[in-house]
């Protein structure tokens, strides 16, 4: 199984700015002083050893995560703005002549999780089949409203692809595209769903837009069971814990600290920080990753938990 991140930003897309690129360039050029960069290979090596906040960016598209198997099933979580590039890549790969089936799993229906759908090109190609799964009863209404005038020029009814909405129940597993998929109800304004995907002995959990009250023992045990032994947990780590339990209480998001705790309780192998706060720049996000790794190290009790931070374009092999 492989996971590809197409959109990792929370709440709103956050494109890189010219100012931010200049800061990166200045840092790279400063680091390049007295370094011999006479061949393309030397340049590549030099770039490879720069901090990620200098050589790359966590990216700016909102939530969209692809789950890849070796049977060419198309499974994605959420249709944030990252779905635009995902759709373009699918079109490039398969062309318009070969109909494809897409299985989408919706965490919930906030803008940042549906806004990519009007620009998801497979929906504009006849013969394609798009199954949108979710636990929210108003799943279809939310997608139709987004496509309606005066907000978008193409009405939902005009989309040539076959689009179906599939209702799932929290806590009830379903077998879809060869995966055993279990949704879980999460604390978020209007509710959200996490999804546990299992196939051929591998497991990934997609758990975004979820606030946790870890002092609620039953709830904590339920999430530990949901994350149990997962190879990867994609986790809403938008805020610092202090913010999440004070000024941003009830805003529906979690922190890196709680991600580490729940994954440790669950015996998960890897934690991926996700749904990045749009006001955070790359240096800040890199700092959060470093601190989270340190937290894991000092609180480790048993096997190590690997910590990564999602960026648009990241591919993780499970």
């Amino acid at each position: 199984m492989q996971i590809r991140f197409w959109g990792t930003r929370g709440s709103l897309p956050a494109p890189l700015t010219t100012d931010a690129i200049r800061v990166k360039l200045a840092a790279a050029l400063t680091a390049a002083q007295n370094v011999r960069l006479e061949t393309p290979a030397a340049i590549d090596d030099f770039i490879a050893q720069l901090p990620f906040s200098v050589s790359g960016t966590f990216g700016g598209d909102s939530s969209c995560v692809e789950i890849i198997d070796n049977e060419d099933n198309h499974v994605i979580c959420d249709l944030g703005s990252g779905a635009r590039r995902y759709g373009a890549e699918m079109l490039r790969r398969h062309g318009p002549e070969q109909p494809q089936t897409y299985h989408v799993f919706m965490s919930h229906l906030h803008w940042d999780h549906i806004m990519g759908f009007p620009f998801f090109t497979p929906a504009f190609i006849p013969g394609n089949r798009i199954l949108i799964h979710g636990c929210h009863p108003n799943l279809e209404a939310a997608f139709r409203r987004q496509h309606g005038a005066p907000s978008f020029p193409v009405d939902f009814n005009q989309l040539p692809a076959s689009i179906e909405f599939v209702q799932l129940q929290p806590g009830v597993s379903a077998d879809i595209a060869g995966y055993r998929i279990t949704p879980l109800l999460q604390r978020h304004a209007g509710d959200s769903s996490g999804y546990r995907f299992e196939k051929t002995g591998k497991c990934v959990v997609y758990s975004t837009d979820s606030e946790h009250r870890t002092e609620n023992t039953r709830e904590t045990e339920a999430f530990a069971a949901f994350f149990r032994n997962a190879d990867l947990v994609i986790f809403d780590a938008m805020y610092s814990l202090a913010d999440a339990v004070s000024v941003k209480e009830d805003w529906g998001h979690s922190s890196n600290i709680i991600g580490v705790e729940l994954c440790q309780l669950a015996g998960a192998k890897r934690l991926c920080l996700f749904h990045h706060e749009p006001v955070f720049g790359d240096i800040q996000l890199e700092d959060i990753l470093r601190q989270t790794r340190r937290l894991e190290e000092i609180t480790r009790d048993g096997a190590p938990l690997e910590i990564i931070s999602a960026w648009d374009g990241l591919v993780v092999d499970l």
């Binding site: 610092s240 814990l241 922190s255 600290i257 340190r294 937290l295 000092i298 609180t299």
Partner: peptide, 15 residues
């Protein structure tokens, strides 16, 4: 030391 680091990482040193 451990609790102090947890305070810093969680931003409770600002509280």
């Amino acid at each position: 030391a451990l609790v102090q680091e947890i305070f810093e990482i969680s931003h409770f040193h600002l509280v």
